[in-house]
Structures are given as structure tokens and as C-alpha cells.
Design a protein around this nucleic acid. Structure first.
Lengths: 144, 144
DNA sequence: TTAAATCGTTTGACGGGTCAATCATTGACT
DNA sequence: AGTCAATGATTGACCCGTCAAACGATTTAA
């Protein structure tokens, strides 16, 4: 009750601010957006995967996935082809060039993460992670 | 080093997920977006304010502020007028209707926050808030 | 076998954010 | 006074996300 104006609201606000401040810096430092890098990471782990399968791994709309992949195709980081025995599916795959570039992105990302979590002990990190997980669960339970 | 794949990366990922999952739910539950509500909150605290002054309080682009205010004006939640002695400025002010509506939004927001932080003790909340502040500071230090 | 339902993908319209260019107004300088 | 710079607001182009509608391909059912 009485703390609703001190910490409670503040935390939501902070989560928001962190996101808004971190996203653009991440993009500048690493040279790629978080969403797109996440997409590439998933592609890195597999050989070839259909778009919907990929979409389910990442938390973004299938429309957005299509658009990302189109642009990545233009940049020749991925190739796409129809699944031979079921033309509804399109398979996506990293190009050699793509695989190489990802390594560089990963490195930038690691550096970035290190800066964000500077001065956090391992213990603090797990503690924070646990709390964030609890928040995530709470959010999941909220129904519209 | 060795924990870079366990917690470190996970935390950034979580912060992202929380934002992406929370924002749409917030909007559905409260009936207004976080940014717009923040704008209204600032307006609530003052009588009349110029757009740039408002923009500096909130962490969004002045172009976005202009667009928000135009829409809020259409909905008759705010009024805008040129500053008499310096026509470059436009002053913004809540309408009576606007002030009343905000009360309702606040209530919805409080409820929402309660759900997000369910089962968090007061101590845990301050602990979390402190850590988030540290992260914010770290982010601020990062230069492009 | 044809009609309907389903599935994966794509597209269009929209909301909301950024940056860069522009406009009107005002202030400062000569 | 007249020019030039600074300031606040606006606009246009773009990125990235959503939803809903459409489209082709395939499967199901009559």
C-alpha cells in the first residue's frame, strides 16, 4: 500500500528505461539489433530450419520474421528455399559469410554484456536473474 | 569467462523478454501505452508546460512527443496554445476531462504493478531496484 | 474428386520510435 | 535595419513490431 509510490512503480519504470537506453546502445556497439542477432543465433545452432520453427524460438511475429529474413537475404547472410516435398515451408540457412560474421557479432555482444553487468559478482547475477525470472512468471499469469 | 553463457547473457535476454511481454499487457490492462501515460503523468504534476520541457522529462524524441500530443488533443485530453510572448513555444495543458481520466489510468496501473511484483517482499523490491539502478549507471557509461 | 479447412508465408495498414531536414520565430551582431 | 544563428516544433523517411487479411499449397472429408 504505502510503498506503491516508492519502489513498486519505480521498478517498472526502471525496467522500461533500461530497455530504452540499452537497445540503441547495443545496436551501435554490436552493429546489429538484438532481435536480428537472436534470429541469427538460432540459425547458427541448426543447419536449416523452417520459418515458423524459427519464429517459435524467437519471441516475435511471423511477419517480422519474414521481413528480417528478406533483408538478411539481401545482405547475403542467409539463403532461403522452398521445402521440396511441401512447398508451404521455406527453409532458411546461414551462408558461409553469415556464419563468419556472427562470430564477430558474438564477440561484440560479449563485450557489451560485460559492460552492462560491470561490478556484478557472480552471486549477484544469479540473484538478479532469479528475481527477473519471478517477474517473468508473474507477467505470464496476467491475463488481458 | 565461464559464466558468460549462463547468467550474464541470460540477464540481458531476460530484461528484453520482460519488456516485450510486459508492454503489450500493460497496454491492454490499463488501456493506454506506457509512454503516453508517462507523458500524462508529467502533465498532471504541472499546470502548463512547453513541449520541449516536457520532452526533456520523458525519455522520448521530440518528434514522438509532438505526435502523441496531437492525438491527445484530438481526444480532448490536452489543449495546446502558443506562448504569447514567444511564439516558438507551445504550451500544453491537461483538460478537466483529461485530469479525471488519468485517475482511472493510475488505478489500473497500480493494479498492474501489483501483479507484476506479486510475492516480492519490500526488502526484495529495494534490493532489485538497487541492482537495476546499478545497471542503469553502467549503461550510461557505455559510449558508442 | 471436388469442396472445405488448415497451414506456412506474405502483404498492407497501423502504432510508436529514431534521425535529419525544414519552418517560423526570436535573438544577436555589424 | 538587415543578416545570420539559435531555438522549438513539425514533417518525412525509415526501422521494427503488431494484427488482420490474403495467398498458395496441402490435407481432410463428403
Amino acid at each position: 500500500m504505502k510503498n506503491s509510490c516508492s519502489d513498486e512503480g519505480e521498478i517498472l519504470f526502471q525496467l522500461n528505461e533500461i530497455y530504452k537506453q540499452m537497445s540503441p546502445k547495443f545496436e551501435r556497439c554490436t552493429g546489429i539489433s538484438q532481435s536480428r542477432l537472436e534470429l541469427l543465433h538460432k540459425l547458427f545452432e541448426v543447419d536449416e530450419i523452417s520459418q515458423t520453427a524459427l519464429q517459435k524460438e524467437v519471441n516475435i511475429d511471423s511477419a517480422a520474421v519474414t521481413r528480417h529474413l528478406k533483408q538478411l537475404e539481401l545482405k547475403e547472410m542467409v539463403t532461403r528455399r522452398k521445402k521440396p516435398d511441401d512447398n508451404r515451408f521455406t527453409f532458411v540457412k546461414l551462408t558461409e559469410e553469415g556464419r563468419e560474421k556472427i562470430a564477430a557479432f558474438r564477440k561484440e555482444k560479449e563485450e557489451f554484456i560485460g559492460k552492462v553487468l560491470k561490478d556484478f559478482s557472480e552471486q549477484e547475477q544469479t540473484q538478479l536473474s532469479t528475481m527477473l525470472h519471478r517477474i517473468q512468471s508473474n507477467i505470464e499469469e496476467i491475463q488481458y
